[in-house]
Write a protein that binds this DNA or RNA. Structure first.
Lengths: 233, 233
DNA sequence: GCCCTTATGTCAACACCATTGACGCAATGT
DNA sequence: ACATTGCGTCAATGGTGTTGACATAAGGGC
């Protein structure tokens, strides 16, 4: 009935045919579990309905459409990642810890992350995380505009790497293997006549198959430290 | 017939019902055009077949499956991006120019980029680009392992931002608007009691809606310059 | 110039998918 | 006890990728 998500307090709770009582929370739980166990392709309205023991169309009483559901799941992941986070040490340590938490959180749910990492959830857990992150930038001594700009660059870098690595993890095993092996196979085979630099570093190419998140994070934060010193001094 | 992509030189060329003669190249062209004109959701085997004037299943004679086709399209984008690229200035200028080219290339095809930016195409244009990029790192004075590691971090950062921004551009207009407005609406409305840092920088929040690519790129390259000086000295 | 082989375009079918409108049960407030 | 209505269910629509069997025409050998 295209009514979409019911905003106000829900009153009538009728158990489904299978006996469970649906909740926005329960649905998000189930979606997360389902996507984790069997691929992201298992995350369809139909399978979700089957797993919950209800008719697929029942979900439309709780979420406007699948995108809406996806955002709810993404916000849950942000919440999990940042739960109990209290920055320790200086602002750089705080940012580093936050980056690792967010990255790890999305890595724990690669199938979802690949779809949702780049979205703005506009939901409570995200609000809290952005508040925390911008707070750390302000601690670093940046003015308000730079704090926001730097936070945007920071979180986009983290999310970009998270999405990249998650997408790789989320590939079907056969495909993931092919992508990883590419660096040891296809790239090894290129002749030095046409690809001299590749041939030169041939022995190191398997490094391309590993995550570059920590390298990129280290570089980013080092640059931020320099810039903060400049802003203060 | 599940034969998949025909590897060797194709001999018999039979025109389709509509008279066109299919080619791997022609199909990639058409896919790129189709995804550009009407959303990425328009990029389906059936629509592609319709646009080419052939039966949808004919495409399976040229590509093993849609993922295979996607990689071919992605490689074409890389080729377009790097076409005629000759690094000018020092290695940092070269990396900056390369980053901007790749970012722009994917931005020109956001619907594809959102799907393909994180894949390894294992195809000629990608080989060439990686060879070029690692060459620039070697010019910077890094040893072979660091050159590969830094190139991985570099290209992943660029691709991550490209995918992030592309995914945003690729959203349905109504959804994109909602995501962008979030920073000016939902985030503005949060009370300073619960979200003090957000309230403090309230005026600057719309900056979050803009791309952070240039900021992140600047920071990344600045850090790389410092590290290169350390490696040399 | 014919025939044989085979590459490749076409057809039909399968098993999925998201979404919607009508329907009706049952839980709730009176 | 009743009326209201939230919400779970059903059925249907129009999309998707992929496959196997089939038919046809192109090209090579003679």
């Amino acid at each position: 009935m295209t009514a979409g998500r019911v905003p106000v307090e829900r009153r009538r709770r009728r158990p489904t045919k299978a006996g469970t009582v649906l909740t926005e929370e329960l649905i998000v739980d189930c979606a997360l579990r389902l996507a984790g166990e069997h691929g992201a392709e298992a995350l369809s309205v139909r399978r979700l309905g089957a797993a919950l023991g209800c008719d697929p169309s029942a979900l439309y009483r709780y979420f406007h459409d699948t995108d809406d559901l996806l955002l709810a799941v993404a916000d849950r992941i942000i919440g999990e990642s940042m739960e109990g986070f209290v920055p320790e040490g200086d602002w750089l340590d705080g940012l580093r810890a936050m980056a690792r938490r967010v990255y790890a959180g999305y890595s724990r749910h690669p199938r979802i992350a690949a779809l949702a990492a780049y979205r703005v959830t506009r939901r409570p857990h995200e609000f809290r995380a952005v508040d925390t992150g911008i707070g750390l930038m302000l601690e670093g001594g940046f003015d308000e505009a730079d704090a926001v700009r730097n936070y945007a660059a920071f979180i986009d870098t983290v999310l970009g790497h998270a999405a990249l690595d998650a997408a790789h993890l989320a590939l079907a095993p056969e495909r993931r293997g092919a992508d990883t092996r590419a660096w040891a196979d296809a790239y090894q085979a290129l002749p030095s006549a046409t690809h001299p630099r590749l041939a030169q570093v041939r022995g190191q190419l398997p490094l391309m198959g590993e995550s570059s998140f920590e390298t990129a994070l280290g570089l980013f934060l080092a640059a931020l430290e320099v810039r903060a010193a400049g802003a203060a001094g």
